[in-house]
Design a binder for these strands. Structure first.
Lengths: 310, 310
DNA sequence: GGAGCGTCAAAGGGAAAGCCTTTGGTTGGT
DNA sequence: ACCAACCAAAGGCTTTCCCTTTGACGCTCC
């Protein structure tokens, strides 16, 4: 059974003859006739009585008609549902986000997207750059914003914002030059992102730097949220590190905290990622474009809005 | 978009890979892959992300899935509904019946049919032989039971019961020989089937006979139901005619009434009719078979059960 | 009652789709 | 680093699809 056959069957009913139906569908009459005949053969029953004048449905045809209409309508809905996704009239756009992305940034991006496409639902997932990268490279989500580096080669990575890791302490003397990894290792240390440990790219970069310097980073406190680490550091519990991106706009940044870049900068970069060679859905493309726009604007404004440095 | 494509799409989701899905559908992998690719091309969107290990639905694919399932299910229901009709598990069997068919006969046939096929609905339509014949020859209904003659050449006519028209009167002297059309024309006359007049074959035969005898049949009372005519005749309002078939079994036959055949018999015949060269649905075939059976049995029992003759 | 119109079926041919097998390229696992 | 699983691509064969032409049948209008 074919959708086409059902459509031809319905057209024949509607127009009262095979000829008229064929005309309406821009077909030759024998073509349509054959399809109906084929349908009848497959179903094992005549659907029409061919009386010279006009077609009359058999009992089987009468039984088939409403079901055929339902089937054709369902197919149309199926096509429409995909078109909705394509035309940004429906569906869900999913964006993977590294865990300590500034909430105001995510909020901005999502709000801007919803303003343009109110019918598309948005899902923001992810707590960790490497986890997001894995999900994107496996195709579970289409796009994400992560901290570099991400190792997976199946990704299309577009860096959008360079940043560096800052030393953060409540004691202004601790952020005076020279700001070194040794100093960080020496003092009481607070490290965020406890859950994912060495999988986090920034944390990995930090540990590698320590190894190279011959010191070990032994955190006195491990917390999950960077915000918590900052809060603890502001209270003098210990020193910590914070991504420069998180200090921008000073949203929720503790006043008591002083930050400074390392003498030998620990660079990090934010990037938008998507699967290489996998076409992005319009929704995701739009979402990524907005994210890039937000991050780009952020990079330009960064200098003037940095948190106090020593 | 094709039902097949939707089925392949769903199979691919279910089995997690094109290869497994193709196996399950007894297809080669490239065949299934191509169908999915074609579907994607038509919809203008990728439905799967082909990650080396397993297939992952895109957003469009996620949107399509439930609609595809609905569509395929609807198609299955469509096929099933026709099969139900074919297998006598559903649908409606329609039987055309001439207007003054004895209700007990129709009741017997329908009851027997329903006993065998309780899921098939039965519709009994028609008030007049010629109307039934027209409906059957136009294909509006598949089969019927009529009084001969019927003129239409597109019919397959199988006579099943010979009968004749009887003179009926409350006065026993009026049914003594010679029973002639002249006598009928002379007395107060009650004629049934007023609505369809000369189109009714029996009435036509009667009028033709009168014309041949040089008399005119001017009914004093015209009624629609033969039963009403008999009732009036029983009360002495006038004389009437009644089909012999109606007097059998004496069901509802007025006791006060006397009947007799005409000296020159006015023959009539009951026949089952269907469209020539149009295949009967199983339900109609069964219904007709039962009707023939009932009428055949009736013909054998006729002699012993006739109403009182003079 | 025959000419003309409309409708469907049948036949023949060309284009397209569907399916197969083989082969090559990726990805993941051992 | 090799092996297994999987998908895509290519070539070839069969079937389907669709067309045009033709013939048969029924209806209508002279």
């Amino acid at each position: 059974m074919t959708l086409q056959q059902l459509q031809h069957f319905l057209a024949a009913i509607e127009h009262g003859s095979f000829s008229a139906a064929a005309d309406a569908l821009h077909l030759a009459q024998p073509s349509l006739s054959e399809q109906v005949r084929r349908l009848e053969a497959e179903l094992g029953t005549a659907l029409f009585v061919r009386t010279g004048r006009r077609l009359v449905l058999t009992e089987a045809g009468r039984a088939l008609r409403p079901e055929a209409e339902r089937t054709v309508a369902a197919a149309a809905r199926a096509a429409a549902s995909v078109a909705d996704v394509r035309e940004l009239r429906g569906g869900t756009a999913t964006l993977g986000i590294f865990g300590d992305a500034p909430p105001w940034l995510v909020g901005n991006v999502v709000a801007a997207f919803r303003r343009r496409h109110p019918d598309v639902r948005v899902r923001v997932v992810g707590v960790n750059s490497s986890e997001v990268a894995e999900a994107v490279s496996e195709g579970r989500i289409e796009a994400g914003i992560v901290l570099l580096p991400v190792d997976d080669a199946a990704l299309d990575v577009r860096p959008v914002l360079r940043s560096q890791l800052l030393y953060a302490s409540a004691d202004p003397r601790r952020v005076r030059p020279p700001v070194t990894i040794e100093r960080l290792a020496a003092g009481p240390l607070i490290l965020p992102d406890a859950r994912f440990g060495a999988a986090d790219p920034t944390q990995r970069a930090l540990l590698e730097r320590a190894q190279r310097a011959g010191v070990r980073l032994e955190p006195h406190v491990e917390v999950e949220q960077p915000q918590t680490a900052l809060e603890l550091a502001a209270r003098g519990v210990g020193d910590t590190v914070v991504s420069e991106a998180l200090t921008l706009r000073r949203a929720g940044f503790p006043r008591a905290l002083h930050v400074a870049p390392f003498d030998e900068p620990i660079e990090e970069a934010l990037a938008v990622i998507s699967r290489r060679a996998a076409p992005l859905s319009p929704a995701s493309r739009e979402l990524l474009a907005l994210a890039e726009q937000q991050l780009g604007r952020l990079g330009q404004a960064a200098v003037g809005e940095r948190a106090p440095v020593a």
